[in-house]
Design a protein around this nucleic acid. Structure first.
Ligand SMILES: [Zn+2]
Length: 270
DNA sequence: AGTATTCCCTGTTCGC
DNA sequence: TGCGAACAGGGAATAC
């Protein structure tokens, strides 16, 4: 469910509750949620330690301690929020942590979400590609990098080791913006379109962050707020509707096993 | 190197 | 209405 704008929104919403505080305990209801550590590791390395910073990296939420990092990936249905109590009628709380008189709750219907503990961020640095909202995501960078790959464009945008943070919604929206067919090969895209793709990626991500992300069904932040970038979508979920640019009917297909929406007139395969 | 398939899970929507 | 299939903002592990 959550992509870069949603993860950024969630990160900022929990940050104010975490900074300068510390976790006293953890209760784990779904054991697989702790991907690479145990409760004893939490007790030894995190419990009682000051939270120095909280930020987003790709689609991960990174909670920084003096000598360890706690990272959270929401995957499809994960929700991370601060609460004053644990509601008994919630069926899908995978885990929660206590922080003073509050709770940091991880609720996750599909149970794909994961917590990671790292001594440093080498693992994520090696796994994740460039941050699309960083200065390094320059015109030269994307021109050089796309030429070196021979990939279906949509698959390439979803590849977190290429550009991190883009997911299914923003891949479709950025490709529509740049008039690129999702199955076009990356080696055959014109320079002009590559530069437009960069602009489109930055535009859709930034505008979505401004609006708190996109809520289709599950995603909320701060317990119950929805993101309203859904109002600004041009192709995602718009199959059967008219392209806002040329009025052709938007098509939905599958690319890289994911639902993919595009305009058959604006986005010609090359 | 790049692509397709399957799996991890539960809930909702769709088609007959 | 019922019931199974298909589908869902992600990603890892396979097999070609
Ligand atoms: Zn169009």
């Amino acid at each position: 469910m959550p992509e870069l704008p949603e993860v950024e929104t969630v990160t900022q919403s929990v940050k104010k509750h975490l900074l300068g505080n510390n976790f006293d305990s953890i209760q784990v209801n779904w054991k697989k949620t702790l991907h690479n550590f145990k409760i004893s590791d939490f007790n030894n390395k995190i419990k009682g330690r000051n939270i120095e910073n909280v930020y987003r990296k790709g689609k991960y939420i990174v909670i920084v301690f003096k000598s360890v990092f706690l990272c959270v990936h929401l995957r499809m249905t994960g929700k991370l929020y601060a609460a004053n109590s644990i509601e008994k009628d919630k069926k899908h709380i995978s885990l929660f942590l206590t922080i003073g008189d509050k709770y940091l709750v991880f609720e996750d219907v599909r149970k794909f979400g994961r917590f990671y503990m790292f001594d440093n961020l080498d693992f994520l640095d090696n796994k994740l590609g460039i941050e699309p909202l960083s200065e390094g995501f320059s015109e030269n960078w994307i021109l050089n990098q796309i030429k070196e790959r021979k990939r279906q464009m949509k698959s390439l945008l979803l590849d977190q080791s290429f550009i991190c943070g883009i997911g299914n919604i923003y891949a479709d929206e950025a490709l529509w913006y740049a008039k690129i067919h999702p199955l076009s090969n990356s080696s055959s895209i014109s320079k002009k379109k590559i530069l437009n793709l960069r602009k489109g990626i930055i535009k859709v991500l930034k505008e979505s962050i401004k609006r708190g992300g996109t809520t289709i069904r599950d995603y909320t932040y701060d317990f119950s707020y929805v993101g309203n970038y859904a109002l600004k979508l041009n192709v995602f979920g718009k199959e059967g509707k008219k392209c806002p640019r040329c009025f052709s009917v938007i098509i939905k297909t599958k690319v890289a096993q994911r639902g993919t929406h595009y305009c058959p007139r604006c986005q010609i395969k090359r």
